[in-house]
């Protein structure tokens, strides 16, 4: 299980912002999200989409626990 968060355009596309999903790795999570919603699965592979686990950016696949919080972060723009 992991708490999954979507931000910006990704959350608009998926129609949700937060969901709890039974998964044990980022790769597994990407597969499950893509199977549920192909457009979201594609968008998560998009350029500039970063992944944070427990509020730290991760560059590679990472094991997840029940307490993990996974966030998909599309290109950022503030100010």
């Amino acid at each position: 299980m992991a708490k999954v968060l979507l931000f910006g355009a990704l959350s608009d596309l998926a129609g949700w912002r937060e969901k709890t999903i039974e998964v044990d790795s980022i790769a597994d999570l990407r597969l499950k999200l893509g199977a549920e919603d192909a457009a979201l699965g594609e968008a998560l592979k998009g350029p500039g989409v970063q992944v944070a686990v427990d509020q730290a950016i991760v560059r590679h696949d990472t094991a997840l626990t029940a307490a993990s919080e996974v966030a998909f972060l599309p290109p950022m723009s503030g100010g």
Partner: peptide, 26 residues
């Protein structure tokens, strides 16, 4: 600091007007 905030800080900005909404990228 402003250059960082514009394109690297974790914010996502959506503009809504008469032609609909769009997410803004740097």
């Amino acid at each position: 600091l402003m250059d960082y905030l514009k394109s690297r800080a974790p914010f996502w900005k959506k503009e809504t007007g008469p032609d609909g909404a769009r997410w803004i990228e740097p």
